[in-house]
Every structure is written in structure tokens, then in C-alpha cells.
Write a protein that binds this DNA or RNA. Sequence first.
DNA 1: GGATAATTTGACCGGTTGGTAAACATTACA
DNA 2: TGTAATGTTTACCAACCGGTCAAATTATCC
Lengths: 212, 212
Amino acid sequence: MAIPRAAKTQRRTRIQEEKEEIILEAALDVFSVHGFKGATIDQIAEVAGMSKPNLLYYFRTKEAMHRALIDRVLDTWLDPLREFDAEGNPEAEIKSYIRRKLEMARDFPRESRLFANEILRGAPSIMEELDDLRKLVDEKVEVIRAWVKAGKIGRCDPYHLIFSIWATTQHYADFDVQVRAVLGPTRSGDGRFEDAARFLEQLYINGLQIRP
Amino acid sequence: MAIPRAAKTQRRTRIQEEKEEIILEAALDVFSVHGFKGATIDQIAEVAGMSKPNLLYYFRTKEAMHRALIDRVLDTWLDPLREFDAEGNPEAEIKSYIRRKLEMARDFPRESRLFANEILRGAPSIMEELDDLRKLVDEKVEVIRAWVKAGKIGRCDPYHLIFSIWATTQHYADFDVQVRAVLGPTRSGDGRFEDAARFLEQLYINGLQIRP
DNA sequence: GGATAATTTGACCGGTTGGTAAACATTACA
DNA sequence: TGTAATGTTTACCAACCGGTCAAATTATCC
């Protein structure tokens, strides 16, 4: 009789788990293409294969759906950077970072575009999370500075090094349409990620004057 | 009495020129942040300081405003690539290309974000233009291949070289909020573009094994 | 200055959107 | 199996959105 909104109940039922998963999956489809304002609950409901009020039973507002998605994505999005290890040698670390970021662009392009849409809008809903990001980056910047001091890599600005790796790898998810259009149908196969990986590894290994 | 829509008249009056300029300026503000679907004519009208029907007197539809903007932006957007010269030496050409792209990211961030929004959506309205882009890129790819053959730069995939320059430079416009958040208030001054330029020049000159 | 064309606006319209109310259906569990 | 909690749907609403219309205002040119 009472209306304990799914989101409020402490214990979550099997159905809640399943349906919320389906909804977030559909929401990711729609938000990642149309952005927050451009997406409509009706669209998401259609993709999810359920009625609009049913969606709103699990997530009280459109904002709540978006929020839940962003929170989930942001966390996994930074994993590759967290693994960036001071103990490892620069060549292996940077190569594997590039690889992992490229794999994410290939395997989770919607997540990348969701994030890109959010930043493009001015990131109104993730300012706090950006603060966490800053701290993590600052940490890794020190790792890179240590490498520079030890003479393991050439002098460079660690911040812009990180930015450039983000940019080059996410480009293949966010600007996928453009990449495909430029490469043409023959070069647009899955091989483009392997080609990108080879190019970027070479660029950074030589560019940072890393001595093996 | 008759209603010769501004857009249809052959001769354009002074007022038409002025007002269309004001409208496109306002539309750029709004579209670049909210994307096509997310933007509303009312918002644009408010920014432009005129009534909604007045906007629609100059541009018959929201689509027409967006179209006019995209057409204008795309043209100037590719100028730096057009100037990429086969005769010049690789070091100077690549350096100046990076510089020019970074200047555009600094001076025309809204235009960059408008374009990014369009590509993120799947570029529904600029498929033909992407074809022109492909041809231009193919041209420049040959230039780079010639440099490689002549031993002026190391072996590399020219397509991904171009992609990476696009990505790294546009990043400073499209992801400006993130860049600022990571750099913090002290490092977020205009100097960040100079720092980026230095880093990227070094990265590419060394990374492409360009011998001066 | 007056006729005519160009410009501007308030009022309005049909369709869409985010969200609600309440009745109905299903599930979990004693 | 009964029943209370959970899940689903139909019908609906108020606000908003893109766009129209006709009337009012302003600029242009003789």
C-alpha cells in the first residue's frame, strides 16, 4: 500500500537489481548520444522496453538516472590512471597506460561519450568528482617528475603529458564518426585501434626520450 | 505586405547583416554548450536580446540557425590543415600546425565545442562535409608519406599522426573545464596554452624522430 | 511627408516533455 | 493459500518547445 520507492528501500530485490541494470544500460545508450537535455525519458523507456512510469518507479527523476550513470562510469574510468605505478619502469608503464585507455575507448565508447558530453556542458554535476580527479593526477604527476629527475625520461610537463594521453586515446571513442569517415570503409575495421596503439606508443617512447 | 523572408531576399539590408550576426553569435553560445537538441530558441533569443519570432524571421527554423553556424565554422576550422605545406620542412610545418590549432582552441573554444557536440551526436548533419574532410586529409597524408620516404621523419602512420594532433589541441577547448580543474586555479591562467605548445612541440619533434 | 517594404512583437497552437495519481498485476512470504 | 509488499500500466497534467499569424512599429525611398 505504501509506496516505498525502489531507490529508498534498504534491501534491494532481485527485480530491482535486474531492472535498474536494464534501465541504466538503456540510459547510457541515449544519454551518450544526445546529452542530458537532449535525451528524453520516453526514448530511454523505449530502449529499455518498459513504460515511462515504470522507469520513474526505479529512478525518481531523469536527473537521478543520469547521476547514477555518471557515478558508476567515473569510478571505472579512472582505474587505468590509478594503476600507474611509480615502481615500474617508464616505458612499460606508459605503454600499458596507452593500451588500457585505448581498450576502454574501444570497449566502452558510450561511457567515454557520456563523460565527454558532461564536460562539454561545463560539468555542472561533477564538480566534486573533478576535485578527486585533481588529487589523483597530482599524485601521478609526482611519479612522472621522479622519473624525470632520475633521468629515466626527458624533461616535460607532466600535466600536459597526461592530458595528451587522455586526448589521443579518448578521441577514438568520442570522435569515432570522424575517425571512420577519414579512414574510409577499408581502414575502419577493428584494426584501427591496433594501428593507433602502435603509433602512440612510438610517439611517446621517442617523444619522451625514454631510454630502455 | 508580402513577407519576403530575410533569408530569401537576394539583396541583404544592413539590418539583416547586423541581426543575423547577433543571432549567430548568440546561437553559438547556446548550441556549443547544450548541443542541438538541448538548445532552445527561447534561450538563443534571450542571449541575442530579441524576441523569438524575430529570430525566426531571420532563420526560419532552429535547424537553419544550426546549419548556418556549422557551415561557417567548418570552413575556417580546416584552414590550418589546408596550409600544411609539402614544400616546407617537417619540423617547421608540424610546429606551426600545432601552434595554429592551439590558438584556435584558445580563441574559438565555442566553435570547437559546437563541432565536438555535432560529432558526438554522430554527425547527422555534416556527413557530406566529412567527405570533403577525408579528401583533404588524404592529400596531407601523402605529404607526410613523402617526408617519411625522404627520411625526414621516422616511419609512422600519417592518419593517426593527424588524429593525435587534432585530439591533443582540441582537448584544451572541448575539455577546458576538466583541464582547469586538474591544473588548479594557479596554473589555469592563459599560460597553460604556452605550456601545452611547448610540451606538444617537444613530443612531436622527438616522437617523430625529426632530424633538424 | 506619405506610400511601401522591412522589421518586431504579443498572442497563440499543436505536439512533446518530465513527472504524477491511482488502479491493476505480480511477487514474496507466512 | 492468503495477504501485504512490490511492480506495472493507463490516463493524465502542467510546463515547455518549435513554429505561425496578424497586427503594430520602424526604416526606406520617392
